[in-house]
Write a protein that binds this DNA or RNA. Structure first.
Lengths: 233, 233
DNA sequence: CGTCACCTTGACGAGTCTCAAGTTGTGTGG
DNA sequence: CCACACAACTTGAGACTCGTCAAGGTGACG
């Protein structure tokens, strides 16, 4: 996919009307760069500059690594998501492809400059960032106050938003990421993930027809197990 | 403090020029509400609507609670911070005062509507939300991949941003929140916090002249202990 | 059919939570 | 100014969850 097509996807996703789309594409073009990234690779964006990335196709993860090999997957991002990549913070972040993946990258400052005159667009980008914030907080709650069992159940429910309903009515979720990615996101080890998945299967809450595929047989049971702090009760 | 003064603070913080400030205040006034909140109380904003809160004075925490009493402090916010309070998510959030505190609240949608014509303002709000996102991610890394010792050291360094330099050169940090708040933020128990603080004191990294005050005697030592995943080596 | 990466399962131990007791500090009333 | 009550914090001992290490199983691909 080339830059123009990528920009068109982005413009459409962000809700630009037919008429203004072309104009938007031209305004953004000088500041955009498209990266076609193979599995496990991490494109280098402008170092030290906050970057905004739009996932044109495939899946990606935002990950922080420590020198000693620990990793925290801060978020998974799917086709159509907008990822805010911070510049300076206490930790280093990179975007890493899960499978082959196409990313559209903008330096933050220039993106904002280019669309100053278009508040609708600015709001749309704003909305994406808020989405990211909300999801990050949800995960922070998982990490801070939940047991392994609750985290895994909650994770499956979150992933279910991208799932489809199978013929038997169960929700079928594809997990494009490895167990290691899941563990690095939930703050657990791959062994613990594995044990929890096995538990859920033994209790009949899920089925695992293949490694990457999970069927949610009892979504309510999962929700109970996830123990979300919602207005429950 | 009344609504007008609060709005003026907000307008100034957000970087509005002298000239446009008055205009901005008038545009925002119909959508703003000011809350004077006593210690430990949680103002009710419009239920089910995303709300943006500006901390006019004092300190506040954004917290998610579970029916069984567990709490996760998602973020602490100080005077001048902007807090994005999500509407619908898997967990319920509330803003809770730490000491007496004044909050300026806007329904999200109306705030954006009121300032559509002012991209500079929109960008400033945008920037605040991104700040929140970055801090939330930093905390997610703490929660997911760090030991109790690393978390507490990292927390003190984060709080040090609001600290002042004492006469002996050490950074003096006031912790307006209780140990329970700290533990609910770091995903630990108050006992563990207490033990870690004692450890740090015994090792000479900090001093604790009073309960709420911490002096960072050896910031580099703390940073080492915090083990931030930054470009270190 | 062999190799390899990935996942699963088991046994054990470290780190943190839980429970319980003690200490410090703060405000209140005499 | 002192005595007391109470909340917040500190410290200790034992339990439990999850991490670590090790061995085995499964599926994909040549």
């Amino acid at each position: 996919m080339d830059l123009t097509t990528g920009l068109a996807c982005f413009a459409e996703a962000i809700g630009a009307g037919e008429s203004e789309r072309q104009c938007l594409i031209e305004a953004l073009r000088p500041h955009a760069r498209i990266h076609r990234v193979a599995d496990g690779l991490e494109p280098k964006f402008d170092q030290g500059r906050a970057t905004l990335v739009y996932v044109v196709s495939g899946h990606a993860k935002l990950v922080a690594r420590s020198p000693d090999g620990r990793a925290q997957v801060v978020a998974f991002h799917f086709k159509g998501d907008v990822v805010e990549v911070p510049s300076r913070a206490d930790h280093n972040y990179s975007v890493c492809a899960i499978g082959t993946c196409e990313l559209l990258a903008f330096a933050h400052a220039e993106l904002l400059g280019a669309v100053r005159g278009n508040p609708a667009f600015l709001e749309a980008v704003f909305g994406s960032v808020i989405d990211g914030l909300v999801r990050c907080r949800e995960n922070a709650i998982n990490l801070g106050r939940k047991s392994a069992s609750e985290r895994v159940a909650g994770f499956l429910l979150t992933m279910a938003r991208h799932g489809k309903r199978g013929q038997d009515g169960a929700l079928v979720v594809e997990l494009p990421m490895s167990r290691r990615d899941v563990s690095d996101c939930l703050g657990l080890t791959i062994e613990t993930i594995s044990r929890q998945i096995s538990d859920l299967r033994k209790q009949g809450l899920i089925a695992t027809p293949s490694r990457a595929r999970v069927e949610l047989l009892d979504a309510d049971g999962l929700r109970e197990r996830a123990n979300h702090f919602a207005s429950a009760k």
